[in-house]
């Protein structure tokens, strides 16, 4: 390229300016990424560091396996967090049992059965549902669902695992439904055509061809829904009853990890076993949620390789 001296110097000025702004932007992006990593790492580190102090005062076996949560500031205090771990596991399972069939049903309906116009109405509605703040679900659960559950089961109180699982199911439905919907939609059309060509009915095509092909996407949808169910606090604390006891039935007030943390964390002194025990509950939730997300990544990577 032919250039005069003056344009060359202009060009090099522009060149340096671009080089400079590129560098600044690059460092800014790198800095942003590093800040995020540092924050995440410090959260995990701080929660863990404070949490493990519990075990200077409480035996590990007592903490995880005892069902006697009776914290306090004297000798008789016991820190059996077993009820909360069991409660969280039961609540998450119950939520998935209710929500997975329905949300996968919605996904199949949207991707395979519904006419285009209906698809275009239902999908934005599901997207809107994801954005509803959890306190609204909790409030509706408290004022409408809990009295209703009490009436149906003939109990005095409707608070408990069932009410919480119903509220959570409603909350995770759109998450699981929409991601499953996308992954079913992504199954190549030729799979369906091949199935039909071999004489499959629509039902057979869905169950034996489409769903297995979209399996990984659906599993990661379920896991993402599960992390939301695990960590949800506001809605749960309003409908679970908040009593540290093992639920003997689905409509008995009980407690889970998140609801117990939020009920008590404000009321305990900073330097106390009680506070450490609550921090360790938070740490456990954090670790489980992170592991589940790592698991989703692995599934997605493997499906890309295939």
């Amino acid at each position: 390229m032919q250039q005069t001296n003056s344009t060359a110097s202009k060009m090099s000025g522009r060149h340096w300016r671009l080089m400079f702004s590129d560098q600044v932007f690059k460092w800014f992006c790198l800095f942003s990424a590093i800040v995020l990593c540092v924050v995440l790492f410090s959260i995990v580190f701080f929660m863990g560091k404070t949490g493990v102090l519990t075990f200077e005062f409480v035996k590990v076996t007592e903490y995880f396996f005892s069902l006697n949560w009776n914290p306090g500031f004297d000798e008789t205090a016991t820190y059996g967090a077993g009820i909360f771990f069991i409660g969280t596991i039961l609540l998450t399972l119950l939520t998935l049992i209710i929500s997975v069939p329905i949300s996968v049903g919605i996904a199949v309906f949207l991707a395979e059965i519904a006419p285009t116009r209906l698809k275009e109405t239902v999908r934005p509605i599901l997207d809107l549902l994801v954005g509803i703040p959890s306190v609204i679900y909790g409030f509706l659960g408290l004022t409408i669902l809990v009295p209703f559950v009490a009436k149906v089961f003939g109990t005095q109180l409707g608070d408990g695992l069932l009410a919480a699982a119903l509220v959570l199911s409603l909350m995770v439905l759109p998450t699981i439904g929409r991601i499953s919907d996308d992954s079913i939609e992504a199954v190549p059309q030729k799979y369906r055509e091949a199935a039909y060509a071999m004489g499959c009915t629509k039902l057979q095509t869905i169950f034996f061809v489409v769903l297995p092909a979209a399996r990984r996407g659906i599993v990661s949808a379920i896991i993402l829904g599960m992390t939301r169910a695990l960590g949800e606090t506001m809605a749960v604390v309003m409908v679970i009853g908040n009593v540290p006891q093992l639920a003997e039935s689905l409509v008995q007030p009980t407690s889970v990890l998140t609801s117990n943390i939020v009920m008590q964390i404000m009321a305990v002194p900073f330097e106390s076993t009680w506070n450490y025990a609550l921090f360790f509950m938070g740490f456990s939730l954090l670790v489980v949620a992170l592991l589940l997300i790592v698991f989703v990544r692995i599934i997605n990577n493997r499906s890309e390789v295939q």
Partner: peptide, 22 residues
């Protein structure tokens, strides 16, 4: 501290709603 007919409310608002609906 326990029982089927016992619950803890997280705030005054939840207390009011529970008594109103139970």
């Amino acid at each position: 501290r326990s029982g089927a007919n016992y619950k803890e409310a997280s705030s005054s608002g939840v207390m009011a709603t529970t008594v109103r609906t139970t």
